[in-house]
Design a binder for these strands. Structure first.
Lengths: 171, 171
DNA sequence: GTTCAGGATGCAAAATTCTTGCATAGGGGC
DNA sequence: GCCCCTATGCAAGAATTTTGCATCCTGAAC
């Protein structure tokens, strides 16, 4: 475990210093699937009092282990019929260009997910649109008018087989 | 609008038949960012009573517009230091092979997101692992031992620039 | 235009859940 | 062994959710 800390970036150590025990793990596992469970329900799950559960979750939120609490909205239900994956390549891998594109990702509502990656592309985006026309309009605005971008490839999502942020939590 | 419904799958019509108004949209926009807001807070946001807000959210959950309520856990905080994007190509695009792989995606904890797509690959996966060794072990188990898979490409995520399921909701 | 039915709303009360204060127990360090 | 710190449970108070009821508004039918 100590060796593990040495091999990783210093900021990773921040997280590992807050030890999660089995009860934290069970709570996280529960709320990452359903965060509307009451403290009573969680208490039964982990064999603590409701108060202790509440306090642990409070701590986990304060420490940033729980980053957010959100409702997941159905894209189709709000008219976003089209989800696409876009592989983006930049003209040059310069820090200012990369940072500029990161900012563009964060400021663009249609981009739901954006990862900066190694490999075949520089960035991977998950973009939603009303329809393919909407997506085309988006590409014009977001890609063609941005001279930092060398190219991009689109893959249309036909089935959201599994769409969640649920992580395996082992302690 | 009627033409739009004809051009889409029948099940899409289910959603469009439940009209969202501006207040629904504002509520959805608020809870998709923070679903721990109280009815009082939401009421101020949309100028209804707390009870009306509560009832609308109850309706939106019952109708499946809100698909889930979850806590987002920090991958690094729970020891998942590595996130990778994997493009997967299958040997053949036969329905039984595709369905088999979809099931595998759903049954595999390391796979956080899995989309069935057109284009350069058949599936795109977002996979988390403890470290690169963990990912390698996963590839052996999940890809090399699966004869349905022709190949896969890995891209390592260096920065989660934007990781959410927040959608633009326009009414 | 009128009427009626259904749905949405707000208010108030009841029920439930969350939050806080206090006492206690357990574990670790010296 | 002692002391300190942290986590826990219980009980009470505060906050929030849920429910029942009355009212209003809108749309459809005549």
């Amino acid at each position: 475990m100590q060796e593990f800390c040495i091999l990783n970036k210093p900021d990773a150590r921040f997280y590992m210093s807050q030890e999660l025990d089995r009860i934290d793990a069970a709570l996280l596992n529960a709320v990452q699937r359903n965060n509307r469970l009451t403290s009573d329900e969680l208490a039964e799950l982990v064999n603590l009092s409701p108060t202790a559960c509440h306090r642990r979750l409070k701590r986990l939120r304060a420490e940033g282990v729980i980053e957010a609490d959100v409702s997941i909205v159905s894209p189709k239900a709000v008219g976003r019929q089209v989800t696409v994956i876009v592989l983006v390549s930049l003209e040059r891998e310069r820090a200012d260009i990369i940072d500029r594109f990161k900012t563009a990702i964060r400021n663009t509502r249609e981009v739901m997910i954006g990862y900066y990656v190694t490999g075949d592309a520089d960035f991977i985006l998950v973009v939603t649109a009303k329809d393919m026309e909407g997506y085309e309009e988006f590409t014009r605005r977001f890609f063609y008018e941005n001279h930092d971008i060398k190219g991009f490839k689109t893959m249309v999502v036909m089935d959201r087989v599994k769409a969640s942020f649920v992580l395996p939590i082992d302690v």
